[in-house]
């Protein structure tokens, strides 16, 4: 059952040290900044964070990294023009990095959420990222065996939720949110607005509420509405 919270601090309560945390977003689009800020205040540490990037600028995921709370990053694209926080930690040997091709990152979480034990994927065959992994030839093509990526917690930003936990997203801020919501034991979502059941068109729901545990309302401050 989904619970709705007025405060992000209440929504992130109970995240334990050593947790694996999925963090939505592609760059800053879809980044659940307010939930991350609440996680910083909450204090959990020694985290493994799974996210497409390894933080941008000094806010959101970058702020969590700067606090020294992340033991390991699992991501596809850590190095960017504004990833100075991660870059510094990595070069100082203060954070582990697992680089995963972006599609494998998404599909491994999808598999975790869908009860798939493992899957054969053509991505990365013959590259360093497939070294040591089991391969199989199927109909003349070589595939690499990839395992699900499941987590204790997912932090996701959506646009609007209803009280059932059904979610709709906004434009490319959707990105990893719907997949991450399925792959964690506890899925925590920040939205701009919560509406009563019936307030969302059931045909337009992207993430059904069965995947969502906690919703926190964070009114938008950026000016991007509609």
């Amino acid at each position: 059952m989904t619970t709705v919270h007025d405060s992000v601090d209440e929504a992130v309560a109970g995240i334990e040290d050593g947790s694996t945390v999925l963090v939505g977003g592609f760059g800053m689009a879809g980044m659940p900044v307010d939930l991350i800020d609440a996680l910083i205040r909450q204090g959990a540490t020694d985290l493994t964070v799974v996210s497409n990037n390894a933080g941008n600028g000094d806010t959101g995921l970058a702020a969590l990294l700067a606090e020294g709370r992340v033991r390991k990053m699992v991501c596809s694209f850590p190095r960017q023009a504004d990833s100075w926080v991660f870059d510094g930690l990595y070069r100082a040997g203060r954070i582990e990095l697992e680089v995963v091709p972006q599609g494998n990152l998404a599909e491994r979480m999808r598999a975790a959420g869908a009860g798939i034990g493992a899957f054969f994927c053509p991505t990365g065959v013959g590259t360093p990222l497939a070294e040591g992994k089991e391969t199989r030839e199927i109909d003349g093509r070589t595939y690499v065996l990839e395992y699900p990526l499941r987590a204790d917690v997912a932090l996701v930003k959506a646009h609007v939720a209803d009280r059932m936990g059904n979610l709709v997203y906004r434009k490319t801020a959707r990105n990893f949110g719907p997949v991450m919501a399925t792959a964690a034991t506890t899925t925590i979502v920040q939205v701009q607005q919560v509406v009563e059941p019936g307030g969302l068109d059931p045909e337009a729901v992207v993430t059904p509420g069965i995947y969502v545990d906690r919703v926190a309302v964070v009114p938008d401050r950026s000016g991007a509405t509609s």
């Binding site: 592609f26 960017q80 972006q102 998404a106 490319t172 959707r174």
Partner: peptide, 27 residues
């Protein structure tokens, strides 16, 4: 619009007939 970017994280616009989908579908 910070919610609408390309793969290089640069803001873009949508054209008529555009569609959005999640990352697992995209790949």
């Amino acid at each position: 619009d910070p919610d609408l970017t390309n793969a290089g994280k640069i803001p873009v616009v949508e054209l008529p007939g555009a569609a959005y989908f999640h990352h697992a579908d995209s790949f």
